[in-house]
């Protein structure tokens, strides 16, 4: 059974890049354009959530908090996509319940390595 990853980003090109990288590596990918869209799509079970921080409607932090508050996804790993200009947000992310983070820009291999680190 391939693992399913929910990729959340408001940038179409990032979603495409992430989606392509993950699908090539054998993962199932569900794409969401922002936090609210992600929450709607979390009705199906996923193994990992990969989310951007800055998004319209529901942002990455709020999404993480919502995931931790839900019974079905309490223990689902959440990876944040951050940029080096937001060191403080890394801590905010952790406090919100994020499992880890990935600093943009990243190489496809870094993305896969980080996901494997969390999913095993």
């Amino acid at each position: 059974m391939p693992k399913t990853i929910l990729a959340v980003d408001d940038s179409v090109s990032i979603r495409q890049l992430v989606g392509h990288t993950l699908r090539t590596a054998g993962f199932n990918v569900i794409e969401a354009s922002d936090g609210q869209d992600a929450l709607d799509k979390l009705k199906t079970p996923v193994d990992l959530v990969l989310t951007d921080l800055n998004m319209p409607r529901v942002d990455g932090l709020a999404l993480t908090k919502a995931i931790r508050a839900s019974a079905a996804h309490r223990y689902t790993p959440v990876l944040l996509l951050t940029t080096e200009s937001e060191p403080g947000r890394k801590l905010e992310g952790k406090n919100a319940g994020a499992t880890g983070w990935l600093v943009k820009p990243f190489q496809p291999e870094q993305l896969l390595a980080t996901i494997r680190k969390v999913l095993g």
Binding site: T76, G97, T99, K117, L119, G120
Partner: peptide
Amino acid sequence: VFLRGTNLLPLFAE
């Protein structure tokens, strides 16, 4: 740690 979705086993494997 578990409440942040972390699974410790992959860490030991890594």
